[in-house]
């Protein structure tokens, strides 16, 4: 167990702050460069609704240095991004993320390939939806404590799943999410959830359809998503590379998950060849 008040020594990590612009808006990010590099993909770290990008950057900096991997931590500020958890007609965080990755790719060939994505809470929502839309840009997916999911099947209407919703816009988004589904289902997926992440707080979406389709709590919904992912993969003839790691006693708190349960280490050390262990 580590003391949450003690931040790791990040002296060896060079930090750069960049801002990109695209039709969707402006997005800033911290890029953490270790002083040595391995060939593994960089890690894109997506914060949740607390928008604590700075905190995540500090905790992942030591991991960047330990593993030799670059870490990219965007910050969806409240002014520019009142909604960032999923692409909608009016908010396109996915486009901003692409622009960020495209920009980095033009500057550094080591950052040009697919990236691992880690997201916590609302960041996990964005992470898995972005991976459904652009699976070719993703090498592995790490979802921690998402409030709810877009299930990769037609068991629920969009945005909870890929069955047709009511509107034309929904149908468009269903198609966009569904076209690359097979590629998406081949991605290594790790879900992380605290066993005490069971509170139905105000930030948890609570609608009868979602409660019935995915469960009442983040813990239940994570299990539901893992099951749906595996089932969809098998139905497509794909051997799923997916697992769920429970953090015993952990609540809905990313700092606690990192400092007490080594979440950042688990994410950085995960690799496809270890996925079935």
């Amino acid at each position: 167990m580590k003391d949450a008040s003690i931040l790791p020594d990040n002296d060896h990590v060079r930090t750069e702050r960049i801002t990109v612009c695209c039709a969707a808006g402006r997005l800033s990010a911290e890029i953490l460069y270790p002083d040595w590099r391995v060939e593994s993909p960089p890690l894109l770290v997506l914060h949740g609704i607390s928008r604590n990008a700075d905190t995540l950057a500090r905790y992942f900096a030591s991991q960047a240095q330990r593993t030799g991997r670059c870490v990219i931590v965007p910050h969806f500020n409240k002014q520019d991004w009142p909604v960032f958890q999923r692409p909608t007609k009016t908010a396109r965080p996915d486009q901003a993320l692409l622009e960020l990755l495209n920009y980095l790719a033009t500057r550094d060939p080591d950052l040009a390939g697919p990236v691992d994505i880690f997201g916590h809470s609302g960041g996990a929502q964005l992470a898995h939806r972005a991976a459904m839309l652009y699976p070719h840009r993703v090498s592995a997916l790490h979802l921690a404590a998402a409030g709810w999911y877009c299930l990769p099947d037609r068991s629920m209407p969009y945005p909870y799943g890929l069955a047709a919703g009511k509107g034309v816009q929904d149908l468009k988004w269903v198609n966009r999410h569904a076209i690359g589904l097979e590629t998406f289902l081949r991605l290594p997926l790790t879900l992380y959830i605290g066993t005490h992440d069971t509170e139905r707080d105000d930030s948890l979406r609570q609608v009868p359809m979602l409660d019935a389709g995915q469960g009442l709590t983040r813990l239940a919904r994570a299990h539901c998503y893992l099951s749906a992912f595996k089932t969809a993969a098998c139905a497509a003839g794909i051997a799923p590379c997916a697992k769920l790691i429970e953090l015993p006693g952990c609540v809905h708190d990313v700092v606690e998950a990192i400092t007490r349960y080594d979440l950042a280490t688990l994410v950085m050390d995960s690799s496809p060849d270890k996925m079935f262990l």
Binding site: D94, Q95, L133, Y134, K172, N175, R176, I179, E182
Partner: peptide, 24 residues
Amino acid sequence: VPVLRKSDLADPAEAAGFALRARA
């Protein structure tokens, strides 16, 4: 057959679908 506007074609989410379908 769906109708796509020019802004749809320029949308990476829509365009990626063409590439993913083609690759598949």
